[in-house]
Design a binder for these strands. Structure first.
Lengths: 211, 211
DNA sequence: ACATGTGAACTGCTTCACAGCG
DNA sequence: CGCTGTGAAGCAGTTCACATGT
């Protein structure tokens, strides 16, 4: 398959969200124009994004809402349930473990880990916090797809190395450090400080940077 | 001033983090090559990024660490303290209000808001949760720079409209919706679900998308 | 007539390669 | 000589514009 730009994938996520909204409201078809307006992009962009994966529309008409939604779910790999572990049972980790939007979209948290003895064994939203030392053993038999890292910056690289070695192929990193992982591992960074500094830059330079 | 790419600003944030690390360890100079290796980019990229703002290096030598760090702080607008309000005192909002990294980098939380009577008046890490109804009045006299939105998706657009009208120029949106704001407002979206779907896509298509 | 699907043109970010200077 | 600073080249993502299908 051709390489798909990250920006394209983000937009597909967005389109899917709109389509699900339309689906609920019982709308049958939607045009690239309407999707674009809602997502703050252009109709050409919408059509181009979809065209990488096939021809889902009807000329002169638009797209069948439920069908396109279904195709997007397939493309995004949302047809199945993904198993997620959260490493780091601090404030953010705990908030994420309880986050509804996770489960709603097929991301099932199967474990929460920490290395702090004071936290191990504690209950968080139904999960008993596990000892990070058991990571490798657990992963070997539990089939984990995604690891969410909410550990301190100092520990993050070491933890991600273990995670990768354990065979997990996707990582979402909340620690404010740049992680180095092998080419074939999918890595996403969520870096609060960096986002804030982006806003700070915009304010200091009076530049809009609307997304 | 010339328009600066968002990707450039992100990297500047990153460079600054490395420089502060080097600063602590007492290193005097650093080359674009070393910065690049650490940040997963190229030396040419580093030099190009910096060149938009001036010539900070010494040929044959590299960059003076404390000086470059200081210049970057200026560029990123980190020389001053920014006043932040958090709107939405749910799980994420509360976690953010208590987040150390905020204050550490000059982002000072001056208020937490909610519209739920059950939450108003409650204490979160030293803040008494305020009634969202008082937003406009408070902002008028408190000089708020940045609003962080951790409200439900349905409320987000309405809230951001009020925030903008109240005169706040920068918004960080955690709600999983696309917000529409005037051109001159700086807006950043942090969308967990979308990030996860990016990972899901990568897993489903066995594509790396390392950042 | 209307809206999709897509090569072609365009824009802008990244990489190259080298002149310039310590 | 080493490393910066930067025009020029290369490349990737976006936008244009129109042929195509209903």
């Amino acid at each position: 398959m051709k390489r798909i730009a990250e920006s394209t994938v983000r937009r597909l996520s967005l389109y899917l969200r709109f389509l699900e909204d339309f689906e609920e409201r019982g709308l049958a078809t939607i045009s690239s124009d309407e999707l674009a307006a809602r997502g703050g992009t252009t109709s050409a962009q919408v059509r181009k994004d979809l065209s990488f994966f096939g021809s889902f529309g009807k000329r002169g008409l638009g797209y069948a809402v439920p069908e396109l939604a279904s195709r997007l779910r397939d493309i995004l790999g949302l047809g199945r349930e993904w198993h997620v572990i959260i490493i780091g049972a601090g404030k953010i980790g705990s908030a994420l473990a309880q986050y509804r939007g996770f489960t709603q979209r097929g991301f099932h948290v199967v474990g929460v880990y920490d290395s702090d003895p004071a936290k191990i064994g504690k209950r968080i939203d139904g999960f008993s916090v596990r000892d990070l030392a058991t990571l490798e053993r657990d992963v070997a038999r539990e089939d984990v797809d995604i690891a969410v890292l909410t550990v301190p910056a100092e520990a993050a690289q070491q933890v991600v190395t273990r995670v990768v070695k354990a065979g997990i192929g996707a990582v979402m990193n909340f620690a404010p450090v740049q992680l180095h992982v092998p080419e074939h591992i999918a890595l996403k960074n969520v870096n609060m400080a960096m986002e804030l500094e982006g806003l700070s830059f915009a304010l200091a330079n009076r530049t809009g940077l609307d997304e």
